[in-house]
Design a protein around this nucleic acid. Structure first.
Lengths: 292, 292
DNA sequence: TAAAAATACTCCATAGGTATTTTAT
DNA sequence: ATAAAATACCTATGGAGTATTTTTA
C-alpha cells in the first residue's frame, strides 16, 4: 500500500539529500525513514534513489514520482486548509434557498441586501416554487433552506423558526360595494366572489382559513390564478375580491382598494432547514439577519 | 493523520451514496469504512457527509474535499503507472551522455543515428568536455554515462566497457621530410617537433605514450592547440607533425599527409557509467548499439 | 576510523474483522 | 419489522523505536 507518509519521507529525502537529516526533518528515526523508503521502492518496483556515500541522487523515475508526490501533499494540505478555514469563517458557504412565489417577489428585494450586508461571505442561490416542492427538495438536499408560510407538518428531520407575521388584507376594485366599509367582517365575504390562487399555493389555503370558509364550501370555480399579479388583474377587472398579504399590496396603485379583515388575520412566514445539516449556526445567523 | 485510505473510502462513499455498498466496493466491512470516515471527519474537524436514512449527502466542504481527494488518488495512480511503465519499457529514459572533444565531432554523427534506430524511445542529451570533468560530473550524477578513452583509473563506483580501438596516424604537411616514408618509426619523431593538444586532453597523453616519449622529455613548448582542428591547421602551416586518431583524418584533404606509426599504436574508446545507477541494462543495451 | 545507511528485533498504535446496538422508516 | 449505520471489542499488521551491523570514503 502506497502511503502519504512514504511520500512525505521521500520528498524530505529529496530535499535534504541525506537520510539522517530527512529523518530529523520528519521527526522520526533514520531507520524508520530508511525502511519506509525501501517499502516505497519495493511497492513501485523501481529504484527511486541512487544511494551513494557522497550524496544521493534521484533516478529519472524518482524525479517524476517526486513531482507527483509534491502535488499530492499540496492537495492534502489544501484539504486540511479548506476544512479549518470553514471553521474560522463558517458563514463562507453557499446556501441554496427556496422561497414560495407569494413571498419571493415582495420580500426578497428588501431581505437580500440586508443578509448580504450582514454576511458578505455568504452566497445565496435562490429557487422559487410552491411549498410542497420546496419541502421535497429540502429533504433530498437539493435545497439547504426555504422561506415559506408556517405551520409545516413537522418532519423531525426539519427545523423551523418563525421570521415574522404578515397580515392579510381584503382587496377589491374601488367601485366594489365593500369598498365603503372601513373594515371587512368575515361574513361580508361571499365565497362565490372570492378569487383564489390555483391549488398548490399555500396562500390559497391560508386565505380560506382566514375567512373561516369550511372545506367543501362551494367556491368560485371559474377562476384559478397562477400568481398574485394575475389575481390583482382579475380583481381590477371586477371579477371578484381577494385576500392579499400586506407586502403584495402597492399602496400607490389607486386601481385597487384595500381594507383590513376583522380579527387581524395573518400568515406566519418562517425559515426551514434540515436538522441533519451540520451548518446549524449558519441558519441561526441567517434567521437573525432575516428578522431584523 | 489524514490517509489515502480514508480518502479512498470517502470517494467510494460519495460515489455509492451508501455505507454498505461503499464498503463492498472497497472490499472491507461496513464498520471499517464507517470508522475511517469518522476518523477523517474528526481529523478535519468538520462534517463531510450529512447522514440520513433516505440517502447521503455531501456538505459543501465535503464536495470540495471530494474533488481534491479524487485528484490525489489520480496522482497516486499516476505514480504507480509511471513506475510500472518504466519496467515494461526500460529504454524509455533519458541519458545525459558526456563525450570527449576528440571523439565527439568525428564519431557522434555516425553513432547517434544507429542508437536512435535501435532504441527510438531512448533520449540522449550530449555534453562535450575533457575526461576529468566528465568523470567528475558522472560521479555527481550530472551525467549518466560518458564516452571516452580508456583506461580510466578504476573508481569502484564506475563501470567501463571497451567499445572499439581507434588507431593513431602521424600527420604532417606534404612537403615534410617524413612524408616520403611509408611507415613512421618511433625514433623518427622529434619530440621538439611534435605538436600536441593543450593539457587536460587525454589524447595529448595518449599521443606521448604512443610515441614512447618519457615524462620530462623536453617538448615543443610554443604550441598548445585547444582542438584537433587547430592542430591540423598548425601542421598544415608547417609548424610540426602530430598524431591524430583515425576518425579525425579527412582522406580527401590533400593538404595533409598521413602515415601509420609502427606498432599499430591506438587508443581504446570506452563507455563508462555508475554502478549505482539502477539502469544497468540500459547501459548494456547502449553498449551493444554503439559496438555495431 | 568515522559517518551513514541498512538490518535485526521489539513494541504498540491502529486498521480491520465480528458481533451487537441504535435509530429511523 | 427492517435496514442501515454506529458502537464495542478483539486481532494482527505494520510503523516506529533502539541497538547493531555493514559499507565506503
Amino acid at each position: 500500500m502506497l502511503t502519504l507518509r512514504q511520500l512525505e519521507y521521500f520528498t524530505a529525502l529529496a530535499q535534504e539529500q541525506h537520510f539522517g537529516r530527512a529523518a530529523q526533518h520528519c521527526h522520526v528515526s533514520q531507520p524508520t525513514l530508511s525502511h519506509q523508503i525501501q517499502l516505497l521502492e519495493e511497492r513501485l518496483g523501481t529504484t527511486l534513489i541512487e544511494r551513494d556515500r557522497s550524496g544521493l541522487r534521484l533516478t529519472p523515475t524518482g524525479e517524476s514520482v517526486l513531482e507527483k508526490a509534491r502535488n499530492m501533499l499540496q492537495l492534502r494540505d489544501d484539504i486540511e486548509q479548506a476544512a479549518t478555514q470553514e471553521q474560522t469563517d463558517p458563514m463562507a458557504t453557499t446556501l441554496t434557498l427556496g422561497v414560495i412565489p407569494t413571498i419571493a417577489p415582495y420580500w426578497l428585494p428588501e431581505l437580500l441586501p440586508m443578509v448580504q450586508q450582514a454576511y458578505p461571505q455568504l452566497k445565496l442561490k435562490l429557487y422559487e416554487n410552491q411549498t410542497a416542492d420546496l419541502l421535497d427538495k429540502l429533504q433530498h438536499g437539493q435545497l439547504d433552506a426555504a422561506i415559506l408560510a408556517l405551520p409545516i407538518e413537522h418532519d423531525q428531520k426539519l427545523r423551523t423558526t418563525a421570521l415574522y407575521e404578515e397580515p392579510f388584507a381584503v382587496t377589491m376594485a374601488p367601485n366594489h360595494p365593500l369598498a365603503s366599509s372601513k373594515v371587512i367582517a368575515l361574513e361580508d365575504i361571499d365565497p362565490q366572489e372570492l378569487l383564489l390562487l390555483e391549488e398548490g399555493h399555500c396562500l390559497r389555503d391560508h386565505a380560506l382559513e382566514a375567512c373561516k370558509i369550511a372545506q367543501g364550501t362551494a367556491l368560485n370555480a371559474n377562476v384559478r390564478a397562477s400568481s398574485l399579479e394575475t389575481l390583482k388583474h382579475l380583481v381590477k377587472a371586477g371579477m371578484g375580491i381577494t385576500l392579499l398579504p400586506q407586502k403584495a399590496i402597492d399602496e400607490h396603485d389607486t386601481s385597487l382598494t384595500t381594507r383590513p379583515l376583522t380579527g387581524e388575520a395573518c400568515r406566519i412566514i418562517g425559515l426551514i432547514w434540515r436538522t441533519t445539516d451540520p451548518r446549524q449556526h449558519v441558519f441561526r445567523n441567517l434567521e437573525k439577519a432575516l428578522k431584523s
